[in-house]
């Protein structure tokens, strides 16, 4: 079993937490993982791409080959489009937030961006910010997307929820609850 994921967003959107949550759930399931992150200059509001590979044997490359990823989770819709070539044409799925981050002068028309995503096979758009606010904190939008992805990930939901508990435990039960609520809202919205 190999399941490769691209996590795409803009620096500071919490992509690394998503990678850690899914990786923890996979390891609890006895799987091997390989995660690749971006640090340094690109973190300052630039495009950020993380790779996450889970497999029953040790993945070789830290980065995912083009045309092979099973899932693209995008925290920002233009970034979903940017990384499409990594997705397997036959089997790749997209889960993307709808809210644009317009920190560049040439940001395309947002409706065109969203309809380009809608036109893809196996794509799902979510108002992750709104669902996260309903869950109690707009900053939990990343966990909304994990919830939506939970239908596709080859991992039991309980493992993902346990991983969220573990990752946010250090920051207190209130934040654990908010992130779990965000996860469930995302899961329900993508049902």
């Amino acid at each position: 079993m190999n399941y490769d994921m691209i996590l795409a967003g803009v620096g500071g959107q919490g992509g690394i937490s998503v990678s850690i949550v899914i990786a923890k759930a996979a390891m609890a399931e006895g799987l091997r993982v390989k995660q690749s992150e971006v640090h340094g200059m690109a973190q300052r509001g630039g495009e950020v791409l993380a790779h996450l590979r889970i497999s029953d044997s040790e993945p070789a490359s830290p980065t995912i080959p083009l045309g092979t990823a099973s899932l693209l989770i995008a925290f920002e819709p233009l970034e979903a489009l940017r990384y499409l070539p990594w997705l397997s044409a036959k089997a790749g799925s997209v889960i993307s937030a709808i809210a644009p981050i317009k920190n560049i002068p040439n940001y395309p028309d947002i409706e065109a961006v969203l309809s380009a995503i809608r036109s893809l096979p196996r794509a799902r758009l979510l108002d992750a910010d709104a669902l996260a606010r309903e869950a109690g904190n707009a900053r939990a939008a990343n966990m909304v997307l994990v919830g939506a992805a939970s239908w596709l990930l080859p991992l039991p939901v309980e493992r993902l929820e346990a991983a969220i508990g573990e990752v946010f435990a250090r920051k207190g039960q209130a934040l654990v609850d908010v992130n779990l609520a965000a996860f469930r809202k995302g899961r329900d919205a993508a049902r």
Binding site: G67, L84, S88, K90, G92, I104, P108
Partner: peptide
């Protein structure tokens, strides 16, 4: 030969450079 991925979108701007917080 290259593996078959999704076609790149024509909408994607050249890049999103890093910037001041």
């Amino acid at each position: 030969p290259a593996r078959e991925g999704f076609a790149p979108s024509a909408l994607v701007a050249p890049g999103r450079p890093p910037q001041f917080c």
